[in-house]
Every structure is written in C-alpha cells, then in structure tokens.
Design a protein around this nucleic acid. Structure first.
Lengths: 286, 286
DNA sequence: CGCGAATTGTGCGAAATTCCTCAATCATGC
DNA sequence: GCATGATTGAGGAATTTCGCACAATTCGCG
C-alpha cells in the first residue's frame, strides 16, 4: 500500500456507509472521498465499491479489504494516544464524554475551578446519550452509569447518586395518589434501572409524557403535568419541585470514570480525573 | 492522527535512519520526507527528531511514537497481502527471493516453462544473500536453506541437495593430497554447515581464496587454484570440474519454501509454489 | 403526483504539495 | 590537510490535490 491516506478515507467510508457521511467525519468535501476511493481502486486494481445512485455499497472485495484495514485504524488511534501520553506538562485539550444530565448538573458548573487550577488545560465537554468510544478517541475520558467492558479501558467507580419521584409543589398537594400521572423516558431507555422501577410503580396509572431528555422531564414536572423520576442532584436543587416518596425507592446508580490505559498516567489526565472525581464525590453528601 | 501519510514517512525514516535513505525507499525527494516529518511534529506538538548535521536522530519521544506506529505498518502490509489474495485469476507479479546460486542454477533456467504454462504471471526473481522479509512484502515467496521462524510464515521442505569438493580435472591429477589448496566463503558465512565442515577438513592446509560468491568459487576452482565446496547441482554440470572425495562428506542441506499465510491459498501463489517445488525436487534425482 | 431532502457526479479555479537545482555542512579516507 | 562522498537546507517551477458551486438522481412523504 503506497498511500495510507487512501486507506484512511476508505476505512471511514466503509464504516459510515455513505460518501457524504464519511466526508463529514473526515472534515473534507465528499468529492475528495470519492476521488481517494477511486485512487485506491486504481492502486489495488480491485473494484471496492458499487456506486449506487444514493449510496456507496462495498463489494465483497471491498469488505475484505476494509476488514484488514481496520487494525490499521486501531494502530493509528494508539499512536494518537501515545502522542497524548508523551506530551509533557499540564497543557492540552481533553475531551470528556458524559451523560448530559451529569455534565450539566455536576461538571459544567465547576469547570471554572479546574481552569483556575490548571490554566493550560482546555476542556471539551461532550454531553451525549450515545456513548463515545474511547478507543476511537472520540473522547479522552468518559463518565458512564454502568461499567462497560471495552478492551484497553480502565474503569473506576467515583460516585453514586439516588433518584426520587419529583412533582410540582402545587400538583402534589392537589392530586390524590391514585390520580397521579407520570413522566417517563421513551422506549429507548427501557433498560435503565430507574425506568424499570418506574414501570412497576405506574401500574395502570397514566404516563402523560415520554421523552428521552431528562431536562425535558424536569421541565414538564415543573409545570404540574405529572411526576418524573429525577436524580437527586437535579431534583433537589429545583425550587419548584418536591420529592414524592413512593412505597419503594428507585435504585441508586454508580458513576464510573473511564479512561484508556495508555493515557491514565499522564499528568494532564490525572488532573482531569481528580477533578471529575471531586465533582461526583462531593455531591454525594448533599 | 489526522494524516496517515505523515506517519508512513516517519516510520520509514525511523527505520532507515537517514533522510535520503528514507527518500529512496519511499521513491520521493528527500525534501518531501523532511517536510512530512516536520508536519507530523507540528501536528503532534512533539519534537520527534534531532536535526543533526549529518543525520536525523530520533528523540526519545520520536522513538516511542515510531514504536507505536510500527503496528500500523504491519497492518498496511496485511492490507497489501489481502489485495493480492483477493485478486482473481492467474495474473499478476510474483516476487521470488532466493539464494543466488539456487536462483541461477535451478530456477532461472526453468522460468520459461512457467511462463508458457501461465502467461499471466510475471516473475520477479531476486537473488540476494540478504534474506528478504516476506512480512514486509519485499518478496511474495522465498527459498531458504534453513527453516526460519518468522511469525505468519508457512515453511515447507521442497528439496535437498548435497555438496562435494570440486577441482579442475588437471589440478586433481597433478596435485598430491597433502598439497591441495582450498577456496572458501569469507567469514560472513562462517555459520554455514558446509563452511564448518570445510574448516575441519583444511586442517592447516592452504586457503587460497575467500569470496562470498559461490559462482566466483566455481570459477576459481575451474582455473586450478584449489578445491571448492560446491553444491552438486552446480559442480556436476560443469564439464571442467571433477569431484574430489574426501574422508567425510559435507552435510546435505534442505531447501525450504516460505510463503506468507495470507497468500498461500491464492491460485497464483499455488502455481508459483508448485513450479518452485518442481524445480527443486526433480533436481534431486540427478 | 410533486416537492423536499439527501446523496453522488462534474467542471473549474485555487491552494498545497512535490520535484529540481544549487549551496552549505560534515564525516571519512588517503 | 585535503579531496571526496553523502547529507541537509532553501527557493522557484510544475504537478497534483482539494474545495466550491451546480447539476443529476433517488428516496421519502404528504
């Protein structure tokens, strides 16, 4: 292979499926992706993609080549991590991936403290449902609510928080228990423990709103349409919301800190990880 | 890592040591190598090389990065093999690495037969002392005289040949045994079994010529300056040379055929390997 | 059925990269 | 001590590569 760039373009095309999507990921024009894939075909003498009108479709050969080229991408990410690990001192950018609710409530408000302490560190806080891949270096560290088992990753438990049902103060006073309505996640979150717990509790009563966004649930609860299961760190600080104590309590959840093995020892990562640990453990007391 | 080409340049610079050597390997101008390495330094924010007057010298960081980037090169070679393996039919170029003597005496004269049988195959026969690396794809198949243990390589024994001492007809008739002189490999071949055997035999008698080239040894023996240890396939077919039977016989040597695991099943490789096998086993009878 | 959104393909101008040539530096051998 | 060979460095021309704008096609949806 005389041109590794062609392989890089081809691999991301293979993963993204479409020319335009690959172009977005690579931050280049879609024409460039098309050209480089064509160049790779010329170089190998193989037909790697079927150019369909609305999508590039890999041929069998293309699939095989893409598979063998994947390890190359892995190695490239390893190089990226090595660069990060070797970089001296406390400067540089660190990407943190976190569930949006944690990011908003616990991390973002305290970022100023980190910046004061380590002015050289630039933080990129990514609040996303989709769990970013540390292996692909979409983020440097991640907060998760369950312990995943990705190879090469180190997981550390750095906190724990509880849930309660919350409703608007007026709503709770006016509504008899059997008439209470509920606000829940949509079905994409059916596996979450607090959601399961809520399902058993609802038991025939009404679910008036489903949304995948926790802030939306809180906002809705505030208007008095029903009760939402919210983390304490979110519900307790809202002046318009009150806890509603049900028969059973929703299960607590642990906060896991994830970092790649190659990076965990670098000064900058240690600083960020300590900071994140502070954010989550201090909160436990409240 | 946003530009894999920079890594490719840097890795070969790290291996070759000098800018110009890397440029030769990469078939580009040395300035290009320098620029790409500089670009990689800018991209990573690390100082990867010390620009000394007469050589680029990797810094510690550079060494580390180069080490982590090596697997990337491995993967790139794997892609190259995959391309070769996927390529349909019996066309394409195959590189054969072989000890020069074998190449000249056994392979080259018969290549015409292979071409007749498979006109689509283009052979690139590399007769080199230095054993080419199949992993680096410097050759597709190799003939060796000992079984190496490189990872990913398949070795098969495809023949065996013996040695004898040879001298010019006249020289053998005129010279009494105690006055015989010898022709040997230079010290770089001290490990070869036939060389060791020769050393025990010489036992104080004269060694008039040392050369690392077997053809040179044969040519010298032909002129009557002494006896050389030659493979039978080389000495027997020379009308001016005769065997000289010493007390003990030199050890036979096996011929090994090496091919990378990823390539061994492709039609084109099977054809070439069958051909090589023919070349070496048929000869055994003679 | 027609509209809109998304994707791929094409032509052209701009920008970046590369190569070539010459000069400078340095180690090595005689 | 000096010539020689090899290497790095710099500037200008040429080639390659890239991005932009627009056309063409397909798919989904009301």
């Amino acid at each position: 292979m005389t041109d590794w760039e062609n392989l890089r373009f081809f691999v991301t095309l293979a993963r993204e499926g479409t020319l335009s999507a690959a172009a977005r990921v690579l931050a280049v024009d879609h024409v460039t992706v098309a050209r480089r894939v064509a160049a790779l075909e010329a170089e190998t003498g193989l037909k790697l993609v079927d150019r369909r009108a609305r999508s590039y479709r890999l041929t069998d050969d293309g699939k095989r080549i893409a598979d063998t080229a994947m390890p190359m991408e892995e190695a490239a990410f390893a190089v990226g991590r090595a660069v990060q690990a070797v970089r001296p001192g406390l400067r540089g950018e660190v990407s943190i991936s976190s569930p949006p609710s944690l990011a908003n409530a616990l991390i973002a408000p305290r970022l100023i403290a980190l910046r004061r302490r380590h002015p050289g560190i630039h933080i990129n806080l990514i609040g996303e449902k989709r769990t970013a891949s540390l292996n692909r270096r979409e983020a440097d560290v991640a907060l998760r609510l369950s312990r995943p088992s990705e190879p090469g990753l180190i997981a550390r438990k750095i906190g724990r928080f509880g849930f309660s049902l919350y409703g608007a103060h007026a709503y709770l006073k006016e509504t008899p228990p059997h008439a209470l309505a509920f606000i829940a996640y949509d079905s994409s979150m059916d596996d979450a423990p607090q959601q399961k717990w809520l399902r058993t509790l609802v038991a025939g009563r009404e679910t008036v709103l489903r949304t995948n966004d926790l802030e939306n649930q809180a906002a809705a609860a505030r208007t008095g349409v029903g009760l939402a299961v919210l983390p304490h760190f979110l519900g307790d600080r809202d002046p318009e919301l009150r806890r509603y104590n049900a028969m059973s309590a929703p299960p607590d959840r642990d906060i896991w800190l994830l970092v790649h093995r190659d990076l965990r020892r670098t000064p900058i990562m240690r600083a960020v990880m300590d900071f994140l640990s502070d954010c989550t453990t201090r909160r436990r007391g409240e």
